[in-house]
């Protein structure tokens, strides 16, 4: 029987599939549901009000403290994901969330479609990546993951900057783009904010290449994320160098049980090809 357990910066994942940030995970209940459907780890994302409520005490703060207590009941490591406008805001939020019950913290400086954040705020340069990572590192005692954008010239340099700033792992990658779809009858962009990140099949080859490049440039583990819909895609990511794989759009394509399906397919692939651990496949695409 193949061993598909993963040790990610001390986090014990029963399998390498991780619910990616920005998908489903808005509450303890929603991430629990992903775990029940096979996720080895889950990323819970603060956006908008959640984030503001953490930042600025208001009547909601009690709800939020309750929301993120006793996360062990979720049944898999829960990673708290935050985003901010600048190093100061990132650090302030990270300090608050570090006190909560999360197993690790992910900082996202790569959102492609929110003005004031991520790539739209110029956060995807090596200098700013290092500055933000350092500021957060100073406030965080838990494993720190940095989620990177694929929309850059040299992602390996940015990964290096995150590692230098004190990151324990790299989540690669965020969505491509931003992209736009225009409805030609009403002549209006379709998405709510007019633009949005591109994910799924279109993203996967880019994500695999990013993971491949990052694996060569840093020593810290990588959560390979972007278009992983099947076990074969997960193996591809692992061969590029990923320790775990993030799944987001797969929830849309294959339903919430995508985690269980992907895990089953990884196991089947390993059996057919005589691999007994994930380690034996990791980074194998780099061998001459």
């Amino acid at each position: 029987m193949a061993d598909i357990g993963v040790n990610l910066c001390g986090l014990k994942l029963a399998n390498p599939t991780v619910l990616a940030s920005g998908i489903v995970g808005i509450s303890k209940a929603s991430v629990s549901y992903a775990v029940k459907n096979g996720a080895g780890g889950v990323i819970l994302t603060y956006e908008g009000g959640m984030l503001n409520s953490v930042g600025y005490p208001n009547p909601g703060i009690d709800n939020i403290a309750e929301e993120f207590s006793n996360l062990k009941s979720v049944g898999a490591p829960v990673i708290g994901s935050i985003t901010g406008k600048n190093a100061e805001e990132f650090a302030m939020l990270a300090g608050k969330i570090n006190k909560m019950d999360f197993a690790a913290i992910e900082i996202v400086m790569s959102c492609p479609h929110t003005p004031g954040y991520g790539t739209m705020a110029g956060q995807s340069t090596p200098e700013i990546t290092e500055e933000i990572t350092k500021a957060v590192r100073a406030k965080v005692t838990k494993p720190l993951f940095v989620k990177l954008s694929p929309n850059v010239m040299a992602i390996s340099e940015i990964a290096k900057a995150a590692e230098k700033g004190g990151a324990d792992a790299i989540t690669a990658v965020n969505t491509l783009g931003p992209g736009m779809v225009i409805d030609i009858k009403s002549r209006k962009p379709v998405l709510g904010g007019k633009i949005g990140g591109l994910s799924g099949d279109a993203l996967r080859p880019v994500a695999v290449r990013c993971v491949y490049d990052i694996y060569k440039s840093v020593k810290i583990p990588i959560i390979g994320t972007g278009g992983v819909l099947t076990g074969e895609h997960a193996v591809e990511m692992i061969m590029a160098g990923a320790t775990a794989v993030g799944i987001g759009t797969g929830v849309y394509n294959r339903g919430i049980s995508v985690f269980r399906k992907v895990t089953r397919e990884i196991t089947a692939f390993m059996k057919e090809n005589n691999y007994s651990t994930l380690e034996e496949m990791r980074g194998k695409a780099h061998e001459e």
Partner: peptide
């Protein structure tokens, strides 16, 4: 709901996390 097809998580209900849209 933001998406309607089970991806955004906005309609997940406590404690089990079932998505109202799906």
């Amino acid at each position: 709901m933001k998406c309607g097809f089970g991806v955004c998580g906005a309609c997940s209900v406590d404690d089990e996390g079932k998505r109202v849209c799906v």
